[in-house]
């Protein structure tokens, strides 16, 4: 039996913008997009740059554009994305390219912090550990959002991020919403202020690419809608 080959086109940037290299990669029955990229780097072109760590969908470092769609490559089977026997792989959208398939994630994480996606503690080490009531609706919301792996797939999928460089983006805003619903976080005022500014949740057009493409089935669009409701409510409370 002759082994089939895949025609894999990979973007090579940023110095050689829009230059692509085509590789012939042997097909295997069980092969992810990340396996394909790794094969190229190990067997065809050792200068190819890309990023991964866990290979099991935990670390969020392997996201790339696959045929124009943002995906976690370690958990995407190549057979799902092949067109004929061809596939095109490019660096994640909406972030500066460092080299080839590796992007600079700094803007993504800077916005995470700008959205107050940091822990706001109220207790000291001398206080007893506060119990968490797992039965509340707010806890269910926080538990959902906590599953985010910071992969930036939603950020790459969002056209509002593309059009408006100030926009904090779906992942950071969802993190803010998660903390707002977390009984252990004491940053309510700071969070509401941060997401009400010019790059905040009110710029979202609720088109939902973030929710469509999140590999973990999270729902940043609804989280952002929650922030819009909370900020509006807090405004009325201030007026009263």
């Amino acid at each position: 039996m002759t082994q089939e080959t895949l025609k894999v086109t990979i973007d090579r940037g940023p110095d050689t913008a829009h230059v692509q290299t085509v590789f012939d990669v042997p097909a295997y029955t069980n092969q992810t997009v990340l396996d394909v990229v790794s094969w190229v780097q190990q067997n065809a072109d050792p200068t190819l740059s890309y990023r991964y760590a866990c290979r099991v969908g935990m670390c969020g470092s392997c996201a790339m554009m696959v045929n124009g769609v943002p995906r976690w490559t370690c958990r995407t089977h190549i057979s799902k994305v092949l067109r004929g026997n061809a596939v095109t792989i490019a660096p994640l959208r909406n972030l500066p390219v460092i080299k080839d398939l590796a992007v600079d994630m700094d803007p993504f994480f800077d916005k995470w912090v700008a959205a107050e996606g940091v822990h706001h503690g109220a207790l000291t080490r001398d206080d007893p550990i506060a119990p968490v009531d797992t039965s509340t609706a707010a806890r269910a919301v926080a538990d959902a959002g906590i599953e985010c792996i910071n992969c930036s797939v939603c950020y790459a999928a969002c056209d509002t991020v593309t059009a408006n460089d100030d926009y904090l983006g779906p992942a950071a805003l969802q993190r803010a919403w998660t903390l707002l619903n977390d009984a252990k976080d004491d940053g309510r005022a700071a969070i509401l202020d941060a997401v009400s500014d010019k790059g905040g949740c009110h710029n979202c057009h609720s088109i939902g690419s973030c929710t469509t493409y999140c590999p973990n089935d999270l729902d940043p669009m609804s989280a952002i809608a929650g922030l819009k409701r909370e900020t509006a409510k807090s405004l009325f409370q201030r007026w009263r």
């Binding site: 009400s196 010019k198 009110h202 710029n203 900020t231 405004l235």
Partner: peptide, 9 residues
């Protein structure tokens, strides 16, 4: 580009 005030208005 849109803050809370413009959004509410």
């Amino acid at each position: 580009m849109l803050n809370l005030r413009l959004y509410m208005l």
